[in-house]
Structure formats: structure tokens, C-alpha cells
Amino acid sequence: MTDTAPAAADTTSPTRTHRFTRSLKRYPIVQAAALVVVFLIGVLTLDGFGTGRSITNILITASFLGIAAAGQTLVALVGGIDMSIGAVISASAILTSYLYGGLGWPDVAVFSFVLVFALLLGAANGYIGQRFGANPLIVTLGSGFVAVGLAQVISGGGSDSVKAPEWLGMLSRPVSTTFGLPVPPIVVIWIALIVIVMVMLTSTPFGKRIYATGASANAARLALISVRWVWVLVFGLSSVLAAFAGILLAGFAGSGNTTLGDPYLFLGLAAVIVGGTTLDGRGDYLRTALAALLLVVVQTILVGFGFTNADRQIIFGLLLLVAVAGYIRQPRLRDLI
């Protein structure tokens, strides 16, 4: 429709400021800096904030949030959203405690069942969203209901007396250690997950296809990437990661219930957004992980200052709004004609 060529970026000489803004785009410097600053504020203003015990607690909470937000990060990278994460966490926790505590299945069978269940559900999310062009928001919302429902059906309504494996709970006890290290295993698991996901995103063909699909599904198609497969795998992976979080959470809480995962949906989404992963294929999991830590530290400080849960929500919403104001605004319609 227009005679004009798209504006071409010039190769300008990489001045110092230029190079600085470029590395800001590439590495989560702002998030890391914010984390350090906020942490220091906590140390300076709150007694006992810098102690090992408090840090361990922060790390445990952040681990759950971070693992729960891993899938959302991948889904956001391909331009989708997964509203079923909370439900899948709840469902997995219910199933884990029921199959283990109620039916007495061995651990491995329990985990396999739960993870395959999640994989199928997530893959269906991705397939339906891509094949029919249905809004992933609604599709995953629906499949979330299905997940919780099926978990309830299987467990016959579930009862809180059913327990998850004992050793699972040990993974996230503050007093637990890992191979002699003074941190609970869940923190190590989370760090391992960060490494694995980052390697997947940066160094595997699948990772490159995820970014390409998110940057432009059309260009990806023209570069012969099967956008459908990418969606199926990414949504499948998202559910599997959520289920993983659910299993761990079942251990932490001792059992599962239908609302166990709900906070992790919205907080996880917030971590992805604050981390700077946008719906157009920019970002990575390290950013989300740092943001998860940042959010937990902010929460902890707010608690320390005596803010109630309600106040924290308000501050949270406003902070989030400010955090995203800078970089994800939509183009003017007038410019699209």
C-alpha cells in the first residue's frame, strides 16, 4: 500500500552509550541491579533481613515462583499466554498426594503419571490455540478447569488427609541441605532448571525456533519452521513445568487442593512481565528468574515494613504498571494504515 521502504537501521559506530543500551537489551542488567538495590534496602532497614535463615526462606519462596513461571516465560516468548498454570499446579499437587498417599503408588509411577497428564493437556492447549487460531487465554482457561476437574474426579474429591511423599517435603525445608551445601535441594533444583532452560533457549535448534516463532509467526513460517509444532511443544512444556512445581508444592504443603496453584498464576505472570519478556519473542528465563527473586524480596521487605497482604497487592499492581510502561506499548493505529 505504501511506496516507502521500511526504515533501515543504520550501522552507526558503536559509541559507548550505544553499546551500553545494547547490552541493556541483551542482559537483564536492570533487573539484577534492581534486585541488588532492593536487597540492600532490606538489609539496611530491617533487622535480620540479611541473615542466612531469611535468605534461605526468600530463596525457597522464589524457587517455587521461579519454577512455576518457567513455562509462562516460554509461552510468552512464542506470543501466547498460559492461564492454566495455576490449575495445573493444583491438579498435580492433588494427584501426587492422592496417587501416593491414597493409592500407594510408587513415587516414580506417580511422577510419570502426573507429568504425562500435564504434557497431554499442554500439548492440546498449543494445538488448539495454533490450529484454530483460538485465543490461548480462553483455551488455557478452559483446560485449566478441565485439569483441576479431572484431578478431582480421579481423586474422588480429594481429602486433605492424603499425604504427599515425606521426602518430597524435605526438598523445600529451610533446614535441609544439599550434598553438604547449606541450601535446601529445591534451590539447587531451581538453579539447575535455570541452566537447562537457558541452554535450551540459547543453544538448541528448538530454542531458536521458539524465538523465531515469537518474533514473527509469519516470518517463521516463511523460514519453514513448523509454527504448530513449536506451539504444541512449548505449551506442553509449560504444563509439564507447572506440574513439576505442583509436585514440589505438594511436598511443601503436605497435600494438594484446588486453589493451591492460583497465586502462582498471577505472580508468575508478573515475574515474566517484570523480567521483560515480551510477547514478541524477546527475553529469556534468566530474566524471569531474577524478577521472581526481585518480587519475593520486595514482598518480604513489604511484610517486614508491616504492610498487610492487601497493601502489598496494591503496591504490586502499581509497580508492575510502572515497570512495563517503558517498553511494551502498542503502536498507534494511525501508523498501521
Binding site: 480462553i138 485449566g144 485439569a147
Partner: peptide, 12 residues
């Protein structure tokens, strides 16, 4: 417990 399953399927 079936309510959620039916909701979800209807929605999708």
C-alpha cells in the same frame, strides 16, 4: 468434581 471438567470442555 465433574463441574470443573464440564466447564472447561464447554469453554474450549
Amino acid at each position: 468434581v465433574w463441574i470443573n471438567v464440564i466447564y472447561g470442555l464447554l469453554l474450549v
